[in-house]
């Protein structure tokens, strides 16, 4: 196990280097000039000398290789540079925005699990009944609607029918006012969790069906255990293994892919920060934030594999 862990951690490094190279190159491939992106049409007023001095201010007059080396060297020591748009260190900005996205992702996943797992189990137990069909249809509805449509609909209903959109546009961190924070987060979390609960429900249902046919479950039934106990104590544990993987993958996705929902609900999350940074050609911020998201993503995958090993006795990483 330890050897496997070391191996995986070792593999982590080349991936990060690859990601950093990819991001560094990608942002420079995007057409458009940093200075125009910062100044807008007034960049047309600049003299050549002013342009040059701005370029050197942003460090863009140096060879690309040197720019990368500087940035990478900084990144190793935890210095991701300074955002041109925000005038703050990139690490501070990530530290400020990441908790918002993390909270959103955790809430969405929790909601999805709370809804998806029980429904999935019920659908499996009452397999091929009207209930099963209904739940499956509901789940599919969650999967087939583009998130921005669901979000728009929810916002519309909230504002016109219920007349609430808690403190819209002025996001309050959890530690500042937990109650208000939760009220602001619950609907974006539902929007994100809706689609995900569908995946969870489907996965739970199918793996539950699979497990319910296995020998040991039959044995447990044979021993005369009550059905409820068979399900909760014997079948569930094994049926949930694929769900763990699913949660891992989804968490990774949610930590960087929620920018549409963050925009609709005006939450100051990492995804929106990054997407805005791309359109503002804020090189340092794009590089730093992407590297961070990718690292978290890879770490979560590692974690999932470990959890996997912990819950599934059939898998062993020591060979």
């Amino acid at each position: 196990m330890r050897r496997y862990l070391l191996q995986r951690l070792f593999a982590f490094l080349p991936i990060l280097i690859g990601v950093s190279l990819l991001v560094f190159t990608a942002i420079r491939l995007i057409p458009g000039d940093v200075i125009t992106a910062t100044l807008g049409t007034e960049a047309g007023m600049l003299t050549d000398a002013q342009r040059e001095s701005l370029r050197s201010y942003y460090g863009l007059d140096r060879p690309v290789v040197e720019q990368y080396a500087r940035w990478a060297a900084g990144a190793v020591t935890g210095d991701l540079g300074v955002s041109t748009r925000h005038g703050k260190p990139v690490t501070d900005l990530i530290g400020d925005r990441f908790p918002v996205t993390l909270q959103l992702a955790l809430m969405a996943v929790t909601l999805a699990l709370l809804v998806g797992i029980p429904l999935g189990i019920l659908a499996a137990v009452r397999h091929n009944t009207v209930f099963d069909l209904f739940v499956r249809m509901l789940a599919l509805a969650g999967l087939v609607m583009p998130g921005f449509l669901v979000g728009t609909l929810i916002i519309y209903l909230l504002s016109t029918v219920f007349g609430v959109l808690p403190n819209a546009g002025n996001f309050v961190r959890f530690n500042e006012d937990p109650g208000l924070n939760l009220r602001q987060m619950i609907f974006p979390a539902i929007t994100l969790g809706f689609a995900f609960s569908a995946s969870v429900m489907r996965m739970t249902r199918s793996s539950m069906l699979e497990v319910l046919g296995d020998d040991y479950v039959r044995t447990a039934r044979g021993k005369g255990l009550r059905e409820r106990r068979v399900i909760t104590q014997h079948a569930l544990r094994n049926a949930l293994i694929p769900v763990v993987t699913l949660v891992g993958v989804e968490m990774g996705y949610l930590l960087g892919g929620t920018f549409i929902i963050e925009t609709l609900f005006s939450l100051p999350g990492l995804g929106r920060l990054l997407v805005n940074a791309i359109s503002q050609r804020d090189y340092a911020l794009v590089q730093g934030a992407t590297l961070f998201i990718a690292s978290v993503f890879v770490l979560i995958n590692l974690l999932v594999d470990l959890v996997y090993a912990a819950v599934d006795p059939r898998i062993s990483y020591d060979r």
């Binding site: 959109l165 546009g169 609709l264």
Partner: peptide, 20 residues
């Protein structure tokens, strides 16, 4: 207090909900 709500449909929603 000037808030940024990037989506105009959401601004309208906030106005209707009496939040701004």
């Amino acid at each position: 207090e000037m808030r940024v709500i990037p989506d105009e449909a959401s601004i309208l929603a906030a106005l209707r909900a009496g939040e701004i």
